[in-house]
């Protein structure tokens, strides 16, 4: 008789979707996005050292519609990963585990990241630096 197939932990098919697991997944996803952003940042530094022509080519790429879309995405990913990372550091020292604190800090990370992203791109737009 074959062994009965039991559901494996953490029972994803019956797990109720909520803010805690959503933000946890988003933390990892934003981390992966930022690793790709690190490649772009390094390319930017290297192009700057390689001379004016290569820096212009890099800046031209970042200023295009696809480049700007990526930069706005990385800005949000950065601020979200930063704020949610502070949440994780607080948990690591034993703070903020209560239900209310978890929910408030979670929403703060999401809306704080959206506000910071808007502020950075608003400033850039205002001074037309890109």
């Amino acid at each position: 008789m074959p062994a009965r197939i039991r559901p494996l932990s953490p029972h994803l098919e019956i797990y109720r979707w909520q803010i805690g697991n959503t933000l946890s997944i988003l933390h990892r996803l934003s981390g992966v996005a930022l690793a790709a952003g690190l490649v772009a940042l390094c390319y930017w530094f290297i192009s700057l050292a390689a001379g004016e022509a290569s820096y212009r080519a890099a800046a031209h790429g970042f200023a295009g519609p696809f480049g700007r879309l990526l930069l706005v995405g990385w800005t949000f990913a950065f601020f979200y990963h930063l704020l949610n990372g502070v949440r994780h550091l607080a948990w690591d020292v034993g703070l903020g585990f209560e239900r209310r604190a978890r929910h408030v800090s979670g929403w703060l990370a999401v809306f704080g990241a959206a506000a910071a992203t808007s502020a950075v791109w608003g400033l850039l737009w205002h001074f037309a630096r890109l």
Partner: peptide, 12 residues
């Protein structure tokens, strides 16, 4: 990646 970027910053 890190090595190339550090070298670029040092050159500047």
């Amino acid at each position: 990646l890190g090595g190339a970027s550090l070298f670029a910053i040092l050159r500047i």
